[in-house]
Amino acid sequence: MKRRLRRIAPLVLVLFPLAAAAPAAAQGSATAESLFNQGLADMEAGKYETGCKAIADSHRMEPKPGALFTLAICESRWGHVATAFTRFGEYLALYQQMTPDQKSRQGERAKVARQERDRLGPLVPELSLSLPPGAPAGTVVKRDGRVVDGAQLGAGVPVDPGEHVVSTQAPGGAAWETKIQLAEGEKKQVELQVNGASTPSPSGASGRRTAAFIAGGVGVAGLVLGGVTGALTLGKKSVVDEHCGSGIGSSDETACDQTGIDASESASTTGLLSTIGFGVGLAGLGAAAVLFLTEPKQGEAATGAASRQIRAGVLAAGPGGVVLGASGRW
């Protein structure tokens, strides 16, 4: 994955005067000077892990533009393109604040920094991390041992190529960990998992609330069906009155002509549908209310404590009406 970036001749000309001037620039800080010289020697020997660390420690102890520039060069040669891109940007921002005399003492560094940023930009990978729906509040996400700020979740964040270790941990839960490999210039989106939260239990708060919405939707649909078919039944009743019994001049109220017979049969069907629709509607709304009212508290769901459970529904339906029932435990 990591490749050694080709050294270019101008960098040698830029870094050599820095090495010679390091004792003077250190202004009596022997430790910072020693770390810088050690880091520069390791970098030139291709020992980037120890070299970059020593230069970074020197710069932290005594911030200097030249040390920052050298650190960017070291990270770039090491293959840490995202870190190098950032370091060159920091150097250029610092360069803009310098006086003309200070800028002149920087030589070609600013020019090289711009060239390196232009070259490294397309090589910087981006990693976007996101939590699954239903992840508990307070879930901690870490990348390479460092906590990821919540504002960065879901956004593409520049990272160095190579392997990255990402973990999640919900409050009081077990940690979950994965390894993600990124190539230069690669952009990857990863939805993480959270132990105990990535697959919510249907009996938990989230599953119970979803069931309540479904039951409520069924209830509303049932009431609509009952209302529509009920209106049709009333319409058929007037037709029956006109084509049966006295409506056709018969003393037998059950006697009907063909139109009356058809209307009577149709009214019977729509009346049954209306009865069932209203029954299902009331049962659905009742079940939704029960599910909402008996939804377990967050603490109960987290600890797995037994919660109140109730099931409500239509047990039977027929021409004479519907039978509703409920069962469960408190």
Rank of each mutant, 00 (worst) to 15 (best):
A205P: 10
V322H: 06
P122T: 00
G286L: 05
K188T: 07
A197N: 08
Q169Y: 03
G150V: 13
P63R: 00
G121T: 14
L291H: 07
T139D: 01
G235C: 06
R311M: 12
S327Y: 13
V239G: 06
T70N: 01
V190Y: 00
S201E: 14
V14H: 09
T303M: 09
D241H: 09
D144S: 07
T303K: 12
A215K: 11
P161L: 03
V194E: 04
G279L: 03
R77W: 14
F88Y: 15
F292L: 15
V159L: 02
T229G: 05
A135R: 03
R209D: 08
E265P: 00
P296V: 00
P65W: 05
W78Q: 15
A170G: 12
L71G: 07
Y48K: 06
R208G: 02
A283F: 02
S307G: 13
L94M: 14
D262H: 10
E242F: 04
A221Q: 07
V157N: 06
H243Y: 03
R60L: 14
T139Y: 00
Q152H: 10
Q38W: 08
C52Y: 01
V81A: 04
L18F: 09
V148Q: 05
D101P: 00
I55C: 07
Q258D: 14
T210V: 15
E116C: 07
A231N: 14
T270G: 02
A32I: 04
P125F: 02
